[in-house]
Every structure is written in C-alpha cells, then in structure tokens.
C-alpha cells in the first residue's frame, strides 16, 4: 500500500445533502463533504453540533439508535452506501471505527484482535497469527504486548486498550477508519502516542477523526470541518481553516470565544 502517491487527491468518501433525523429532531442539515483518501479529516465543533452524528453516518452505525431516519446520500468509492443493495456488514468491514471509550472485549489480547478476521471467516491459525502480529505492530503495540498475547485485554492500561482497539480495527483490513474522540479518555503521553500512530496510519488508510481538542485537530489533520447546530459551517485545509477562517463563527470557535 505504499504506492498511493498517485491517488493522493482521490476522494474516498463523499456525503451529498446528508440529513439525519432522530424522531422529529433534525440533527444534520444537508451536509456536503468530500473525504480525501490517505488524509486525515478532522471534525470539530461544540458538543451536540452533529459532528459525531455525521461520523456515524459514514458506517451506518447511527441506525442502531431507534427512530433514526436519513435523507441524502453517502458514497464510498462512488458506491451509494444508503441503498438497498448495500451490504451493511460488508460496509463496516471497509469502514472501521474507534470509539471514545476504549472498549476491549472480555477476552485475551490475541482474541480481541483475531475477533474481526474470525467473524469474516478466517479460521487458519497461522494466518490469524500473522494478522494479529501485523495489526499489533501497525498499532505500535507489538513491542509492549507481543509477549503477553494471551493475557486478558482488560488488564492493559487505558492507552494500551485504545491502541488495541485500533489494532482490532486494522485486523479486518479496512479502507477508512473513523475515530470518535479517541483520545478523550487518555493521559497526555498516551495521547501523543496515539497522534503519532494516526500520522503513520494515514499512509495506508483514510482517517476521519472527531475531536474536542482544537490543538489536536491542528496537529493531526490535513482537512478540518467545523460543525455548528447540525450544519457544516466551514470545510477547508486544516492550515487554511485555523490560520485564516473564512467564517466569523469558525473564527469565534477556534479562538475560544464560545464552545
């Protein structure tokens, strides 16, 4: 996956006039966004602005909330994901997700990582071993945990658990990784390790990250979208958006005047 240079500017995912309703409440108003392959796209904005809702439309996970309806469309490589033909299980294999709170399954480190490949039908032990090692290495966890694969994952530190969750996502070989405030439960050292990891991962994956922390968005992302009240106020290259915001509300938010 190193010869991606030529496809750098390719659009991996794209939302078109996307609207989300929870019962009668409209959580997102017509969002149009292009997510570029092999880049990190950050979504920022105050709580309740719709950034997490948007993230969850990208792998159709918001459908778990009863009473959700969706208008508009999201494309993954030109394929409409909100269509009858879309295989939701297959979609989630291609679009992985890391949650706010690291939630390891009550199993060993090895079984956590092997969970995804197993459900997708890989039974061969050698092949599984290989995937587990590769995923743990890619998540910068092999050094620490390689010798303790069969200890319960719950015994790891919070930072290690979050990287294990990432390894678990990598193990199903996704194309896009969604991260919902992945550092919010971590200490500063674990956070910086995580940010390094994100920088490494974007070489092979497309990453969308929701964050509360504007410095983090500025540090890790290439593109940033600012959400407010369910609308995408501004979307631009990160450098541009932080240095020279086009919109007054964006400027107010990033300079800390509200939020």
């Amino acid at each position: 996956m190193d010869n991606v240079v030529s496809t750098k500017q390719e659009i991996k995912m794209k939302s078109v006039d996307l609207q989300v309703f929870y019962q009668d409440f409209q959580a997102l108003h017509g969002i149009d966004m292009d997510i570029k392959a092999n880049h990190v796209t950050a979504l920022i904005g105050p709580s309740g602005c719709g950034k997490s809702t948007f993230l969850r439309t990208l792998n159709r996970l918001n459908e778990l909330i009863e009473g959700t309806t969706i208008k508009g469309q999201v494309y993954l490589d030109d394929q409409a994901i909100y269509s009858k033909e879309m295989d939701v299980v297959g979609l989630r294999k291609r679009v992985g997700m890391v949650f706010q709170k690291p939630s390891v399954f009550p199993m060993s480190v090895y079984e956590n990582v092997a969970y995804g490949p197993r459900i997708h039908g890989i039974k061969n032990r050698g092949q599984l071993d290989e995937i587990v090692e590769k995923s743990l290495r890619a998540a910068n966890l092999w050094e620490e945990m390689g010798g303790r694969l069969h200890t319960p994952a719950a015994r790891m530190s919070g930072g290690q658990q979050q990287r294990l969750v990432i390894a678990r996502v990598l193990a199903v070989d996704p194309e896009v990784i969604l991260m919902d405030e992945p550092a919010s439960a971590l200490d500063p050292i674990s956070t910086s390790k995580l940010e390094e990891l994100i920088a490494e991962l974007k070489r092979a994956y497309t990453i969308v990250i929701v964050t509360h922390n504007m410095q983090q968005a500025a540090r890790v992302s290439d593109y940033t979208g600012f959400f407010l009240n369910g609308q995408l106020i501004e979307f631009n290259r990160t450098k541009e958006l932080f240095v020279n915001p086009a919109n007054q509300q964006t400027e107010d938010y990033i300079t800390g005047r509200f939020g």
Partner: peptide
C-alpha cells in the same frame, strides 16, 4: 426518507 435497514444478517 430512507427507511432504516435492520438487515444485519450473514447468510
């Protein structure tokens, strides 16, 4: 409106 698919089955 897009109805919610609950189809989360494998074969």
């Amino acid at each position: 409106m897009q109805p919610i698919s609950k189809n989360l089955h494998r074969r």
